[in-house]
Design a protein around this nucleic acid. Sequence first.
DNA 1: ATAGGTGCAAAGCATTTGCCGCGGT
DNA 2: ACCGCGGCAAATGCTTTGCACCTAT
Lengths: 160, 160
Amino acid sequence: MESRIERLCVERGLKMTGQRRVVARVLSDASDHPDVEELYRRAATLDSRISIATVYRTVRVFEEKGILDRRDFGGGRARYEPSEHGHHYHLIDVGSGKVIEFQDAEHEALMRTIAQRLGFELVSLRLELFGRKLDPVQAPKQARARRPKPSNHPTEQVQA
Amino acid sequence: MESRIERLCVERGLKMTGQRRVVARVLSDASDHPDVEELYRRAATLDSRISIATVYRTVRVFEEKGILDRRDFGGGRARYEPSEHGHHYHLIDVGSGKVIEFQDAEHEALMRTIAQRLGFELVSLRLELFGRKLDPVQAPKQARARRPKPSNHPTEQVQA
DNA sequence: ATAGGTGCAAAGCATTTGCCGCGGT
DNA sequence: ACCGCGGCAAATGCTTTGCACCTAT
């Protein structure tokens, strides 16, 4: 069946190849923020004759067409999520690397005001919180690498 | 003369070599957010027998000692500024790449509250605004590269 | 038919690191 | 003297690209 993102591709006049269909499906099904490696892994299980270069090219095209948003949570690799996913920000759990999404209606308006006060029209903004889970019982204290690369975990959806 | 940052190095027990002294001086004198290339360029004018690998090693050490803060403004290269520079955020002019600093006292408290509501202790946060200069006269419309790499410009200090 | 997509391997960039001689303390 | 530091070049990790072939439209 045609995935949600495949539909968007067609709308925007992209040539639909087998590989793009697979990546579109993987993205449509994802509820997290996978990096290219991860997309490639998931795509390969659906169709093993896809190369990682194609995944790189595909996310770039999708991003240029406004279908995907690229995120940089620090850790050196870009991560992706579908654009039409509502306005939200991210909180990264520094312990586990999990990403929690949250919303804050007032925030963007506030930032727009600040930008204006500085003489700028707000084009976009980046807001990420890094937090440690408040121990409900007892947070396991784990050794920390010097430059932790947040891993890829399912994303929780939360209203703040 | 001993630069401000050199003093910090000594306080924190770093072995002071000629190269470190040079990097410390460059950083003490900087009022912007240079990347490693730029630090290297500036350092080389003071002492040409320094290698870029040393600059990389030095900023890493300084960062670990809490002397420097690393910033990622998007564009693939890390940029640095002295830590004891007061709490502030950054607005990047998407037209020119210039970085404007601003403060907002309430903001961090607000984010702390949000994190807590989600069950997290706020460890750090990243906030960057990207804006286009509001035309006082007429903003020059320039062609945009696909993945613009913000260049390195003197930083303006502003109160928002 | 043909513009554009794909695979593969090589190239690119920013950054790190192994090795080994050198220089602070 | 000793341990850490610096230079150089090679290695790394993510991402892009040249080239030759293939395929949606």
